[in-house]
Design a protein around this nucleic acid. Sequence first.
DNA 1: TCCTTGTTTCGATTAGGATCGAACTATGAA
DNA 2: TTCATAGTTCGATCCTAATCGAAACAAGGA
Lengths: 227, 227
Amino acid sequence: MKDGPDIAHIAALIGDPARANMLTALMGGMALTATELSAEAGVTKQTASSHLSKLEAGGLLTIRKQGRHRYYQLADTDVAELLESLMGVAMRAGHVRTRPGPKDPAMRHARVCYDHLAGDMGIRLYESLLKRGHLNEQAGEPALTVAGRDFVTGLGLRLDALEGTRRPLCKACLDWSERRTHLAGSLGAALLDHMYASGWAKRKPDSREVVFTKSGQQAFERSFGEG
Amino acid sequence: MKDGPDIAHIAALIGDPARANMLTALMGGMALTATELSAEAGVTKQTASSHLSKLEAGGLLTIRKQGRHRYYQLADTDVAELLESLMGVAMRAGHVRTRPGPKDPAMRHARVCYDHLAGDMGIRLYESLLKRGHLNEQAGEPALTVAGRDFVTGLGLRLDALEGTRRPLCKACLDWSERRTHLAGSLGAALLDHMYASGWAKRKPDSREVVFTKSGQQAFERSFGEG
DNA sequence: TCCTTGTTTCGATTAGGATCGAACTATGAA
DNA sequence: TTCATAGTTCGATCCTAATCGAAACAAGGA
């Protein structure tokens, strides 16, 4: 017997296709019910129930009871980052399951990645921040510059609150659909919240899609457009 | 069928106890032969051979043939970080396999964690850098301060070379034996190399243990001791 | 109260894969 | 050449865990 953390146990939990599909679905950040997750995974409710209780026992999911529904969500951002890390390694190793149907253009345009913006819009956001000198990359990881601190404060965000947590402020997240980087971390989450709050965009129900209003798109261009 | 990276496949690869043990052993950073790995995993050579070819096909390991030996090592630092990430989640979820035998004090004192220093000495190194103002923690992730840049340059390290890679310069790595943080990233690796090169310490063969010489210990205290 | 919907438990089936013994290949040493 | 060591391939066995049907349980709503 070896000592140390039992990585085999939780890797095995993620290693089942049905469970991996559920976890991937929960990367959308929204809490989902057992029935919804069974559909995502393509198994019956009974099977899903068994999987979900294992994931919960393993500490990967948390349950929130509400009426007769049980809402499941990822236990914390560490789990989300673990899944991202897995996706990154799987990507580079060439293990992509290519979907046979037509790729959904709306999803590629703007979708949510756990709690921050991904897809084409997410990449444009990231590159704009870089180009305008609000962000710079130090050895692979993004960091907010002094000018960047002024900028996000100007948007009305409370930097001290964002930095108070254990979670990194800025984090690079690999976008598998575009194979480019977008912004995660507490700042990435706060920026998406800002867009919701300002009425620029909203979540499409039952989907990871993010739809921008016409005026929201224009406001996005002003703040995060080219050059 | 879902699209996206096939995380279930590579998670399943890590999810087998025998394979997880092999990967954990390779976190020592040293390339190991198939026979050594079979002993680490506690299986026969035949079984190990089958596991190793799967890990190699999955892109988690690379092989280097040398004479009649085949040396295996982790494919890259992304894989090492994925395993660290897994250990972190497994730790917090309380999945620790407590070893029945006595804990090896030498391993707790100083050992290698993939390519950087861990154990008690690793933690002292990290805390000294913090205390002396060479490092500060920004929202959970360590960053080198201006004074810190001078300090490591003074040690003879080439900062530009360290920052040239995709790998982050500074990274927090959770030490499961102490439940504290030590320094990973390209700087963490460079500092350990510096200690080897300066004759402060060397790797004990066939072990993750790092043994400091008497004068090396003194030099460590001067550079990274209290206050 | 009865009915509907969401979820879990039980039992039985089945399939995938981990395991090892034995035989086989490859490389180096004597 | 012959021997020894490192590693793989093959075949058979065995066991775990995924799966689903059916039934039980829980929680609204009528």
